[in-house]
Each structure stands twice: as structure tokens, then as C-alpha cells.
């Protein structure tokens, strides 16, 4: 199971890299979303995907799944959610102000105002 998950995460990250290297800002934002998906899947996978009950003491099982990666992933999801929403608003503001969503046209140096 871990192997399948690793391959899936690999595909997600490869797609993310491809999208982030494109010119449109929106594609880049989608890329960052996929990148964090890949990273989160990896946290879950690297913690081990052994069978066991959900980490709730009420279930009274003999073994539980590892609760720590789930707590980590929850933290990482919220953080990347915050960053993504900020990034989207930033992209929207930049589109309004700079009248382009083409990263190639946003190249510039200090005197280019």
C-alpha cells in the first residue's frame, strides 16, 4: 500500500512542478495546491499505513493507527489553506493592478515601475 501511495504522491508532485513552471498565475496556484496534497499524502504514508482502529479510545481496539501524522497533517492542511487563500487574493489584486496574469510579463528590475 505504501508503494502505491508513494507513486501517487510522486505523480501529484510532478504535476505540481509542471503547473508551477507555467506562465499563468492561476495554474501556478493550482500547482501549489497539488504540491501540498502530495506533501500531505507523504506525511500520512511515511507514518506507516498499517491496519488498526481509528485513533479513538472509545473504539477499544487492540491496536490503533498512528495518531501523530494525523495531527501533523491537520496542522499542515490549515497552514497551506491559509497561505493558498492569501495567494489567491494576492493574485486577484495583482491582476487588477497590473492587468496581466502572465508571469513572463511580471519580470522586471528595480527601475521598472
Amino acid at each position: 500500500m505504501e508503494i502505491v501511495m508513494t507513486i501517487v504522491a510522486g505523480i501529484l508532485i510532478a504535476t505540481a512542478v509542471y503547473l508551477m513552471l507555467s506562465r499563468s498565475i492561476l495554474r501556478i496556484v493550482i500547482g501549489t495546491g497539488l504540491l501540498s496534497h502530495g506533501a500531505h499524502l507523504m506525511i500520512l504514508t511515511m507514518g506507516g499505513l498499517k491496519r488498526g482502529a481509528a485513533p479513538l479510545l472509545g473504539q477499544e481496539a487492540s491496536s490503533y493507527t498512528d495518531p501523530l501524522p494525523q495531527a501533523l497533517i491537520l496542522t499542515a492542511i490549515v497552514i497551506s489553506f491559509g497561505v493558498t487563500s492569501f495567494f489567491l487574493v494576492l493574485a486577484y489584486r495583482a491582476y487588477q493592478e497590473l492587468k496581466t496574469d502572465d508571469m513572463d510579463k511580471l519580470r522586471g528590475n528595480e527601475n521598472h515601475e
Binding site: 501549489t32 494576492l90 515601475e113
Partner: peptide
């Protein structure tokens, strides 16, 4: 210019944060 540069700054740091998460995993 702040809008233009912050787009790049945010993108670079989002990528490095994702790499940090992977390294932690």
C-alpha cells in the same frame, strides 16, 4: 512593484514549505 515581487516571494516560500513538510515526513 510590491504586488509583482510578493507573488514571487510567496510562491518560493510555498514551495520551500512543502519541501519542509516532505523532509519532516
Amino acid at each position: 512593484s510590491q504586488l509583482r515581487e510578493s507573488l514571487k516571494y510567496v510562491l518560493v516560500n510555498v514551495i520551500s514549505s512543502a519541501l519542509f513538510v516532505l523532509a519532516l515526513a
